[in-house]
């Protein structure tokens, strides 16, 4: 079972080896409403933890996705170009947004675990 961590900005990151797969949480997609467009980052781009890396647009809002962890973007979910609704229907599965080759796995320690995130999201609602 891969290790999943969360951010206060409602991103999740699933770590497998040195690759982190990143998306937004179910709570976040629910708040944002129907997705209409995902602006994906360029593969090969290097980001620091906390950098703005993608933009998700719903009918009523546009918001930034921040890199939960620093490193190099190695893959993006091209399927979202045609079907942004996957972020709504399966935010932690087919609705993943991009993958990062993690530069410093110690950065993961500062992220939230599932219980802590759940608490945060409930306080939010």
């Amino acid at each position: 079972m891969a290790d999943v961590k969360y951010t206060k900005e409602h991103e999740w990151v699933r770590v497998e080896g040195d690759i982190g797969t990143i998306g937004i949480t179910d709570h976040a997609q629910e708040q944002l409403g129907d997705m209409v467009f995902i602006e994906l980052p360029d593969v090969g781009k290097t980001v620091d933890q906390g950098d703005e890396i993608a933009v998700i647009e719903s009918v009523k809002a546009a918001s930034e996705v921040y890199a939960p962890i620093g490193g190099e973007v190695v893959e993006v979910n091209e399927a979202l170009g045609d079907e942004p609704a996957k972020v709504n229907s399966d935010p932690m599965g087919e609705g993943w947004i991009f993958k990062i080759k993690i530069a410093d796995s110690a950065q993961l320690d500062g992220l939230l675990d599932e219980a802590a995130y759940k608490e945060l999201a409930e306080g939010d609602a």
Binding site: V36, E57, S58, V59, K60, A61, A62, E64
Partner: peptide, 11 residues
Amino acid sequence: STREQHIRRDK
């Protein structure tokens, strides 16, 4: 319209 100022504000 999410590109526009009333939603995106400074972005």
